[in-house]
Computed example of a mutant assay.
Amino acid sequence: MATEPDEITSSPIVRRETSASRQRVWSVLADGWTYSQWVVGNSRMRAVDPDWPQPGSTIHHSIGVWPAVINDSTVVESCTPERELVLIANGRPLGKARITLRLHDLDGGGCLIEMAEVPVSVPMKWLPDSLALAGVFPRNRETTWRLAAIAERRTDDDVVN
């Protein structure tokens, strides 16, 4: 892996163990159409670039509850298949955030999911880090729970290579 994103060493990291293999968890991440199922706050998917999750690829989604729905997008900053996915999520009107997801094999099977998020643009960047991170930690805890639950229901036939 290239350089360490700041958040993986300086921000609170949500950690979730799952009985699903690293490959099954990755298959959920690599299927951009599942994004609104596991990312808290996303209400629907509008489009997924065909080369998702390659760096520079984009998914287009909506956040919020109808009728207060905002169309937004998330771009892959870097990707190490089955290991790490770094995303830049547009979260209008709150600005952009860098989300780092890492997957690790567990002894005896299963996978450890790590998720960290930091604001990278204003207005959230104006807040003290501790306040901004306190706001996303509970959401990311639920997000990793949903990601693990989807991966645990996957079968080998569902795994994307």
Rank of each mutant, 00 (worst) to 15 (best):
M1R: 00
A2F: 00
T3D: 08
T3P: 00
T3G: 07
E4A: 11
P5E: 07
T9R: 04
S10M: 05
S11W: 02
P12M: 01
P12H: 00
V14Y: 02
V14T: 09
R16Y: 01
E17L: 04
T18Y: 03
A20M: 06
S21E: 04
S21M: 07
Q23I: 01
Q23W: 03
Q23S: 14
R24E: 11
V25D: 07
S27Q: 06
V28M: 10
L29N: 06
L29I: 13
A30F: 05
A30P: 08
W33K: 13
T34Q: 13
T34A: 08
T34E: 08
Y35Q: 12
Q37I: 05
Q37H: 10
V39A: 09
V39E: 10
V39I: 14
G41A: 09
N42G: 03
R44A: 15
M45Y: 01
A47F: 09
A47N: 11
V48D: 04
D49G: 02
D51E: 09
P53L: 06
Q54A: 11
Q54R: 01
Q54C: 00
S57T: 00
I59R: 02
H60S: 02
H61G: 00
I63E: 09
G64F: 02
P67S: 05
A68N: 11
I70K: 14
N71Q: 13
N71P: 12
D72W: 05
D72I: 07
D72A: 14
S73C: 13
S73L: 13
S73E: 15
T74S: 15
V75T: 15
V76W: 10
V76L: 13
E77S: 06
S78W: 08
E82A: 11
E82T: 14
R83P: 08
L85D: 05
L85R: 06
V86I: 14
V86L: 04
L87K: 05
L87E: 09
L87D: 11
I88A: 02
A89Q: 10
G91S: 12
R92Y: 08
P93S: 05
P93C: 03
L94G: 07
G95A: 03
R98I: 08
R98H: 02
L101V: 15
D105Q: 12
D107W: 04
D107A: 15
G108W: 08
G108P: 07
G109P: 05
G109T: 03
G109A: 08
G110T: 04
C111E: 06
L112C: 00
I113Y: 02
E114T: 06
M115T: 02
V118S: 09
P119K: 01
P119N: 03
V122N: 04
V122H: 08
V122P: 00
M124N: 08
M124C: 07
K125T: 07
W126F: 13
W126C: 12
L127P: 12
P128E: 14
D129E: 15
S130A: 14
L131D: 09
A132G: 10
L133A: 14
A134C: 09
G135P: 12
V136P: 02
P138Y: 13
R139D: 11
R141W: 10
R141G: 03
E142A: 14
T143W: 09
T143D: 13
T144V: 15
W145L: 05
R146M: 12
I150W: 06
A151H: 02
R154P: 00
R154A: 06
T155Q: 09
D156S: 12
V159S: 02
N161P: 01
N161H: 04
